[in-house]
Each structure stands twice: as C-alpha cells, then as structure tokens.
Write a protein that binds this DNA or RNA. Sequence first.
DNA 1: GTCTATATATGGATAGAC
DNA 2: GTCTATCCATATATAGAC
Lengths: 209, 209
Amino acid sequence: MEETKISDKRDYILDVAERLFAEQGFEAISVREISKAADINIAMVSYYFGSKEKLYEDVINRKLISSDTIAKSVGQHTSSMDKLFAMVDLYIEKFFERRLFQNIIFREMAMNQRTAMAEKIAAQVHKNFLLAYDIIQTGIDNKEFKKVDIELTVMSIIGIVRMYTTSGTMACKILKVEDESEAFGKKQKDRLRKHLRQLLINHLGIESK
Amino acid sequence: MEETKISDKRDYILDVAERLFAEQGFEAISVREISKAADINIAMVSYYFGSKEKLYEDVINRKLISSDTIAKSVGQHTSSMDKLFAMVDLYIEKFFERRLFQNIIFREMAMNQRTAMAEKIAAQVHKNFLLAYDIIQTGIDNKEFKKVDIELTVMSIIGIVRMYTTSGTMACKILKVEDESEAFGKKQKDRLRKHLRQLLINHLGIESK
DNA sequence: GTCTATATATGGATAGAC
DNA sequence: GTCTATCCATATATAGAC
C-alpha cells in the first residue's frame, strides 16, 4: 500500500527525468531542474536514486528490457511477410509511444562516450537487429522475398522510423501538421505504416495475393 | 600572409570543437577541454570567438550554407531519375564526409531547445527537403515514377543515410567491420549507394532501359 | 521521508601582465 | 596574440535538523 505510493513517486520522477534528458541531453539538464519539474525537493533525487548518473541509468534500464516482445509478436505468424510486417508494426508502435526514450537511446549510440551504458544499449539494439535479419534471410531462402542487402535493409527500416519519430519539429514542418501531438496521432501513424509496408513490398518484391 | 595563418588557426579550433561537440554534445564539453585538445590557451577561445556559445554557432554556420550545391549538382541532369540519383549521391557524399557535423545538426533538430539556431537549421533542412520533393513530384507527373507518399519517401532517404552515418558504433557492429574508418571507406559507401538506388528503383517503379 | 544549509568542484569569462 | 590568475555563477552531493 505504501509501497505502491513510493514506487509511483519514483516512477513519476523517472517520467519527468526521461522527458528532460530526452529533450536536452544528460549534461544540459541539472538535478535542480528535474526536481523543480517533478515538484520534489532536490535532495530527493539522491535519496531515491543515489546520484544524477544513477538516475539516468535507471531511466534507460527501465525501458530497455524487451526484444522478447518482438519475438513474441513475430512468433504468431507463419509467412516471412507477416512476420516482417508484425515486427515493423511493433517498431512503429514502440517508437511512437516511446519517442522521448528513443531519443535518449540514439543519442547514446551516437556518442563515443559513457561506455558501460553504451555497450549495453548497443547489445540490445543488435539483438533486435538479428531478429529482423533472420526474418528477411528466411524470406529470401523461401523465395518469398527477392535478394537484397539484408543488413542495410534492416538499418533502413529502423532509420526511417527513427527519422520520423526523433525529429519532431522537422516532421511537423515537412508534413505540414500543426503540432507534435498531431504528428504522432493515429492518422500519421497509419500513414507511416502504409508507406513503410509499401516500400518493403516493392523492395522485397513481395507478390500480393 | 599573416591573415591566412590566423584563419588557419581559427579553422583548426573549429575542427577540434566540431569533433568534440559532435561526439559529446554542447553542454558535455568544456572550453577547457576544447582548448586542451586544440593545444591553445583557454583564453584564446574568447579571443577568437567571444564565447562558447558563439564558437558553437560558428561551428554550425561554417558548414550550413549549401543547398545551392545540391541544386547545381541536380541541374546537370534531365530525367527525374538522374536528378534523384544525383541528389542521393551528393547526400551520401556529404554525410560521409561530414558525419560529425551531421551529428550536431540532428541533435539540434531533436531538441526543443536553443531556438534561434534550431530555426535556422530547420529552415535549411526544409529547403533541401523541398528540392527532393520537387524532383519526385515531377517524376510522378512525368509518369517516370509511380505514385508514392512523397513526403515520407524523402524523409526515408534522409533517414537511411542518417541511420548509417550517425550511429557509427552500431553500423560497425551490424556490418561486421573492424572500425569506423572502414565503415566509412569507399567500399561501404558504394554499398550504401547501391542499396539506396535499388530501393528507390523498386519503390518508385523505375524501369531500366 | 523531507527539508535547509553547506561543502566542494567545475564551468565560463575576463582583467591585466607580457 | 598569448598567458596567468582570478571572479563569479552554477553544479552535484550530503550532513544533519525535523
């Protein structure tokens, strides 16, 4: 009972910190700003997390567990095309839902810094990459797909979704939508899904039935 | 004569600062570190640039002038396909050559911060976007290309090149190359160019002659 | 658990000697 | 142009009262 309240509060602080770290970066944001935005006393950050660095790690670790989710979602389908599309849908879903978090992940990946965390992130992303790789490889072996550069095809899928979700302002400008909440609404999500499916159908030479 | 020496030194400081800002971000790097890496006295940063903020702006402004370059390179061709491929080649070329700089650009774009600079960057990127948009639009009107979601197709092109160039460590891991210098060598550049061309040929339904 | 007060470090910037 | 020394703001972290 009290337990849940405490972990609610912890979670709330993590939410606030995630947003601020994502928008401005680790070094750009101070624990003062975080505690102010979360409406807690500054000393509470040390109390709950130990340090700013630890808080940052907790923000990342909290959401860096999946890839089982992908495997599970993919496993329900039989054809390579269905598997690939299930994976793409999940990617879009997760990226839209967690676009602030993804911002942190890709920023870390772009750095040659903070290596302990960076290694962990790279390992996780690579695991997800391999899942996608296997799906396409199997599809090619099956003759469901044309032969393509598999590595670059997977990177392209991720790059496209990433481009959309982690450049909010740019996406708004290009798509001529009012604000970010519209850019990440259902309509635009469906649009991106449709585009990406069509692109893959064309690229992999998938025949419609 | 002395003039050139001064501007050489200025340029060298800008080179060093660009690398450090790109690798770690504006706030993460101190003028002390920059001056140490550039082997100059710390006071020289103020002397040459006025402030850290101004130095950062100079780093960005120095390379954010083009889009004429794109127009020029594209203008030499007649068919929409040739124009599009010329643009893609130039994109790949510039991204490989300036991948540290691009890292800064995309980081700025991902932020809701430092708005004066961010607006300027967004304006420039948008200008480049419109060039690509027009090429594809014309191609569709010509019946050279199939109908596609033009906005998302342009974003996809940029997203793919970006994914490759601004996640160095990840790219190495995925492509199983030793180090970054190999990942950004001629061989991998040609591979990316080939992949992207094939993807666009498939997606836009371009017929080979 | 929550707060104030404070220790301590580091950052950007500049004054002024050379 | 270059350097040293220093000012001042801001950062993280914690000790200790409540």
